Amino acid sequence: MKLKHIEQYLSQLTFNFSDPKINLEQYHTPPHLAATILHTIEANYNDIDGKTIADLGCGSGILTFGSILLGADFCFGLECDEDILEVFNENKNEFEISNCDAILFEINTNALETNIFKTKVDTVIMNPPFGTRNAGIDLTFVKYATRIGKVVYSLHKTSTRENIVKKISAFPNVEQVDVIAEMKYDLNQSYKFHKKSLHDIDVDLIRIVTL
């Protein structure tokens, strides 16, 4: 499927972040960025079509529903915010999607001791918090993702690349870590402390193969 067709589909979804929660570092993933992430994963690695997917910090579901569009067998969305899960379910019902489900679940250090899946899912795809407000939360997401997924795709600031790759590579259940794409995150003004209406952030799409 062409990139523009994925983006057109994702642009139709509802993304209600009118009152984002700063403690959760909630930001809307733009349709173009989400489409580029998913297109890169499927076109280069075939890790979506026919696979079981987990979307950590799924929000209103843009990566979940994009994965379904690209042929995922089933997609689990994990999210700690009940309010945004209502939007997820609105999208699910509006587009009459049956092969996905949202799970209210908080990813933290305690969650690392609990695996909610009996076996690993095929692929984890996520845009985790960058850790700007909650230091280390990005790596907490990655650590949990490597416990539940055979392969993990995660988005991180390019400025943190050296540190992120080094720390992920040291996880005991990680076999390989690669930066597979550099992208632009067009971040809209979401909070009062944002000085610009639109801010471009350089981000890396990282692929992690687990043991």
Rank of each mutant, 00 (worst) to 15 (best):
V142H: 05
I180T: 10
I116W: 11
F88H: 07
V152K: 00
K184I: 15
P31C: 05
Y45N: 04
Y185Q: 02
L211V: 10
K192F: 10
F141P: 00
M183H: 06
D19K: 10
V203Q: 01
K21M: 05
D47R: 04
D186R: 14
N44D: 15
E106I: 12
C100H: 09
V174A: 02
P30F: 06
A145G: 02
L187W: 06
V152P: 03
V203G: 00
L205Y: 01
I68D: 04
K21Q: 04
P129I: 01
I41P: 00
N16E: 09
L104I: 13
S169D: 00
E90W: 10
A111T: 12
N91G: 15
Y191Q: 11
L3H: 10
G66T: 07
A35S: 09
V174G: 01
I53A: 08
N23M: 12
C100Y: 11
S60D: 14
N110S: 10
K120Q: 09
V177R: 00
Q189E: 04
C100T: 08
I168M: 05
L70C: 09
A111D: 04
D138F: 00
N163L: 09
P31F: 08
L13N: 04
L211M: 15
T36E: 11
S11F: 05
K51P: 06
F76Y: 15
I103L: 15
P128E: 00
D73P: 03
L211R: 13
A181K: 13
T160I: 03
L104F: 05
G131Q: 02
E7K: 09
Y144L: 10
K51S: 08
M183N: 02
F95T: 08
T158W: 05
Y153K: 01
L33E: 03
V87P: 04
K143E: 07
A181C: 06
D101I: 15
D55K: 11
I180P: 01
K166V: 00
V87L: 06
L24D: 01
R161P: 01
D202F: 06
H28T: 14
I107S: 02
D19L: 12
P128R: 02
E79R: 07
H5Y: 07
K184D: 14
L187P: 02
F74A: 11
F76L: 12
D204M: 03
N127Q: 05
D202N: 11
H39A: 02
V165E: 03
E86S: 13
I180W: 00
P31E: 05
F65G: 07
K92T: 11
Y45R: 13
L3N: 08
L38H: 08
C58H: 03
S18N: 15
A35V: 06
G61L: 10
F65I: 11
E82S: 13
F105P: 09
E25I: 12
V203P: 00
T119Q: 10
E25W: 12
D83A: 13
K118F: 07
T114M: 10
K51R: 13
L10R: 05
E79K: 13
Y9G: 05
E106C: 15
H32W: 14
H5K: 15
H194F: 12
I6G: 03
N91M: 13
V209C: 01
S60K: 05
D19R: 12
K195P: 07
L10M: 05
S169T: 01
N93L: 14
D178R: 06
K184W: 11
E42I: 07
